[in-house]
């Protein structure tokens, strides 16, 4: 059974409809990506799942229970953590305080210490920066902190919104390697990425979104085979047969 089921999700920003009935599924242990160009509704989908945005229509079910229209803080407690686009580090708080807030919903003194050690193992750099203000970290370090902060809540489902955005190629490699290793450790991950080529290297399955709807769904292999990814991003309509992308 799927861990997360999103059915016919519709959302809008004012009069602008961003999602026209999106349906996706994520099973436990899977690494799934939402792909597509800017403005097709990838981030909007994540925001709706995490409760930041109230969907107009549709249902979201997590672990068999409906979570549509729940507040973000309740959804975190259910076990879904979002690493928001642009990292959203608390700049005036130290790395330590950022991590402590990440553990807000699950805090237990003993476990917290162990969790910190585990995070330091994955992200050694954060140990060095432990007492520095989050705003003073580099972009890549901030992204690591954002992911680490989300992991502190022991999410059953981790959602990452554009983790490679604005990072150097070397840092992007590191982040993708990290996501891959998280999956190896058994995390369930829903990833939103513009860098489709890179994402398809590590994900199990992917959904290709276009104009607020799912255009194509399949395994990474299928997507790579059937859809000329380059055409999606450069708007060359003739290059696709199975998937018609209109810009």
């Amino acid at each position: 059974m799927a861990m997360l089921t999103v059915e016919n999700l519709e959302a809008s920003y004012g009069a602008v409809k961003a999602l026209h009935g999106i349906s996706i599924e994520v099973a436990e242990g899977e690494l799934v990506a939402l792909l597509g160009v800017n403005g097709v509704g990838k981030s909007t989908t994540l925001k709706s799942i995490s409760g930041v945005l109230r969907p107009v229509k549709g249902t979201i079910t997590f672990l068999g229970e409906p979570i549509t229209n729940k507040t973000p803080e309740r959804i975190v407690r259910r076990g879904i953590s979002l690493v928001p686009e642009g990292r959203e580090i608390f700049g005036s708080l130290t790395v330590e305080e950022n991590l402590r807030l990440g553990a807000f919903s699950v805090y237990k003194r003993d476990r917290y210490k162990a969790d910190l050690e585990e995070v330091f193992e994955i992200f050694p750099i954060l140990k060095d920066r432990f007492h520095q203000a989050g705003g003073l970290l580099s972009g890549g370090e901030q992204q690591m902190l954002a992911i680490a902060r989300a992991l502190m809540a022991h999410p059953k489902l981790l959602m990452l919104d554009e983790p490679s955005l604005g990072l150097s190629p070397a840092m992007t490699d590191q982040i993708f390697a990290l996501i891959d290793s998280l999956r190896e450790r058994g995390s369930t991950i829903l990833l939103v990425e513009q860098n489709a080529e890179r994402a398809l290297e590590i994900v199990d399955r992917a959904y290709l979104l276009a104009n607020g709807a799912v255009e194509f769904a399949g395994t990474a292999e299928e997507l790579r085979r059937k859809v000329d990814i380059a055409s999606v991003y450069f708007g060359d309509e003739d290059a696709t047969d199975s998937c018609e992308v209109t810009q």
Partner: peptide
């Protein structure tokens, strides 16, 4: 600093 992100940490508004 960032109200919505704080809620994403599980902190009730």
């Amino acid at each position: 600093d960032k109200f919505t992100t704080t809620r994403l940490m599980g902190v009730p508004a």
